[in-house]
Design a protein around this nucleic acid. Structure first.
Length: 227
DNA sequence: GCGACAG
DNA sequence: ATCTTGTCGC
């Protein structure tokens, strides 16, 4: 397994490949959401990717992959823990999304290379980082109204936005993953979070990852029933 | 040195 | 991430 020091060195090397400007198609047709579910009492993790029609929000495809964890949880090295199942699930998709929303930070990371950047650079696709909580940086509480935005800063850099997706509800943290600008990423996350705090992409990926993990476990516990 | 710390 | 129902507060 890759060492912590090697993982940090890899981030330092790959961070220069991140593109924080819009390079997504003018008309987005397919948007994807990703999430990883952890099993409470084993070391199994399941990554899921769900493809949605950007306009109708119809679920077009779901891909999941369950495996054993290969890296511990270390703040700042999160992607090394979640990338394996996500890449496996991504590789099984029949269609390719135009854009992906990851459940974690992109540039809003201590070395400017969170999961959304790592995943985006690796598969060379537009990716948005959308975390439920802050990893690093400082911000002022955005106004209470849905759609309010407050910049997230660290070291004088504007690394992301705290975005209020629902009035009176805690904001989510949006940042560039790859091939998407921060304004565009913020607009898209808000557009995808019409009814709940988190974008539908993330909620659906979470849902399917949970189901896939349970199915994987039940299949394992059921010895091959030969006739 | 101390606190903070995506999931 | 996970443990976990009712309950405090606006």
């Amino acid at each position: 397994m890759i060492t912590e020091a090697a993982a940090i060195a890899l981030q330092q090397e790959l961070r220069h490949q991140v593109i924080a400007t819009d390079m997504l198609p003018a008309d987005i047709r397919i948007i994807a959401g990703t999430d990883v579910e952890y099993d409470k009492d084993t070391d199994l993790i399941c990554g899921s990717i769900v493809l949605l029609d950007y306009h109708t929000r119809e679920v077009l495809e779901v891909s999941s992959h369950t495996m054993q964890v290969t890296f511990p949880y270390i703040p700042g090295l999160f992607s090394f823990r979640e990338m394996p199942p996500l890449l496996a699930a991504y590789g099984q998709l029949r269609r390719e999304p135009d854009l992906i929303i990851c459940d974690g930070q992109g540039l809003a990371h201590q070395r400017r290379f969170g999961l959304a950047c790592h995943f985006g650079v690796t598969i060379d696709k537009p990716v948005i980082g959308c975390g439920k909580t802050r990893l690093c940086g400082a911000y002022d509480e955005p106004p209470a109204a849905r759609g309010s935005v407050a910049p997230l800063y660290e070291g004088g850099e504007h690394i992301g936005n705290a975005l209020r997706t629902q009035t009176g509800i805690n904001p989510v943290f949006v940042s560039c993953g790859h091939k998407v600008s921060l304004p565009t990423a913020t607009d898209i996350v808000l557009a995808m979070a019409t009814q709940y705090r988190l974008p539908e992409t993330t909620r659906l990926a979470d849902h399917y990852a949970r189901i896939a993990l349970l199915e994987y476990k039940s299949a394992q516990n059921t010895p091959p029933s030969s006739i």
